[in-house]
Design a protein around this nucleic acid. Sequence first.
RNA 1: GCGGUAUUGGUGAAGUGGUUAACACGGCUGACUGUGACUCAGUUAUGCAUCGGUUCGAAUCCGAUAUACCGCC
Length: 427
Amino acid sequence: MKKNHDIINQIVIRDVIDLEQYQNNNQFSFEITKKIPGKLGRAGIIHTPHGDILTPAFMTVGTNGEVRFVSMEELKNINAQAMLSNGYHLRNRSKEIAKAGGLAKWSHWNRPTLTDSGGFQVMSLGSGIGKVVSMEREKEVVNAEEKDRLARVTEDGVYFYDPILKKDDFIGPEESMRIQCEIGADIHMAFDELTSLADSYDYNVEALERTERWAKRSLEEHQKHCDDLGYHQALYGVLQGGRWEDLRRSTAKKLAKMDFDGYGLGGAFLKEDLGEILRWCCEELPEKKPRHLLGLSRPDDILIGITMGADTFDCVAPTREARHGRIYTKFGNLRLAKYKDSTEVLDPSCDCPTCKNGWTRGELRRMWKSENLEERQQYFTLSSIHNLRFIIRLMEEARKAILDGNFEEYKEQFLKDYYHTSQQENH
RNA sequence: GCGGUAUUGGUGAAGUGGUUAACACGGCUGACUGUGACUCAGUUAUGCAUCGGUUCGAAUCCGAUAUACCGCC
C-alpha cells in the first residue's frame, strides 16, 4: 500500500462547481437569533451558498448523495433543510460530481449540503468493525482483532480495504480535503479519528493529538483549494477526546484558535455522559461559530444537544430504524410487528405525508413483511418519510420554543410524553 | 380384499437406539445514533400419527389402529 501523491494537488476543478452561488455574495456565515437563558444553547441561522439553515436543525443523511428510498421532492415536502453526504463513500465519484456542478446540483437536492470527511469510517471499519456505536453497553464493547480490521491508522492517514471493490485505498487529511472540495458541499469536515468506547485513555490521547495535527493539515490543504477556486467553502474542525474532560477542553481550546468556520462535535458517547461532554466542548468554543453534533438523533440526545449548544445534527437512525419496523411517535415508538390488524392511522397526530394520506399501522405492517419487493420498497419510503419528519418537526418545535422563550418547558413536556409512553410500550 | 411405502413444530425438513430433536423459512422479542450489510442478536416441538410392547435407554426396533399415496386381484 502506498500513498498516492500524484492525485493530490493535481485536480481542483476551477470553474465547475456552481460558482454563481458562491460569487453572488452568498458566503457562509452564522447568526444567533436567540439564546436559551442561562444555557449554552441557541437558535440561529446558518447562511450558505445554497440557502439558509434555521437552527437547531436536523440534516438528513444521504451518504451517497441520496437518502435511501426517499426522493428529493419528498424531502422538500417534509421541510428537510440540509443533506449530509460522505466523502469516503463518494471518493471515487468526486470528479464526476465536480463536473456536474457540485453536490447540490449533481444530487438534484439544490439546497445546503455538508460532507463528512470519512473519519467515522476509521472507527466503523477499523477498531469498531462489526460493532455498533453503543451508548449503553460500554463494558461489552471490545475492539476488533487487528486482522479483521478494514482500516488502519497511521500518522499520514488511514489505509482502508474496500470490501466491495476488494481494493486497498488511502485517505489522509489532504485526500479528504481534495475529495470534499471536488464534491463541493457547502460545509466540509476536517479529517479526524473517532475512537470507540473500548479505547483507553492513553490511546485517546494519542488519537486526539493525531486528530489535532490532521485538523491543522486539513485547514491548510482546504485553504489551498479555496485559493485555487477563488472562493471559500466552509470547513468545520472536529473535536474528539472521548469522555475525558481534560482532553475535551484542551482540544476545544486548540481548535478554537484555528480558523475554522464551525465545529463538529464527535465521539462515541455513553448516554449519561453526553450532556457534560458537550458542555465542556461548547464552553471552550467561540460562541459565534456553528456547531454540528455528529451522528445523534434520539429525541433525548437531541434535546440535550440543543441545550448544550449544538446547532445542527445528523443521524442514520430515523431511516434505518424505519426500515427495521420502528416508527417514531411523540408518545413513544411503535414496533410495527404488534399492529397486524390495526386500522389506526400510523400516527394520528403527525403532519407527514404518510400519516396525512391515511396509511394505517396494519397496512404498513403488512407491507413491511411483504414478499413483494415493490411493496417493501414503498413501505421503506413511507416509513422513512414519517420518521424523518418526526425528527425535523422536533427541531422546528424546539426552535420555536427557544424563540418563544419556553424551551425548558417544551423539553420537559416532550421527554415526559415520550418517556411515559415508552414505559407503557414496555408495560 | 391383499401387498408396499410413508406419517417429525406454523411451513420445508434433518435425524435410524444413548445427554437439552440439526438446519432453513415464518413468528415473536430485542438491538440499531458522522448507513459496508432491507441488517444483527435472542427466542420459538416437555415432543417425532395413535395405543401398546421390547430395552438401563426409542422419533429411531416390534405389534395393532388411523390416515395418505403406490401397486395387484
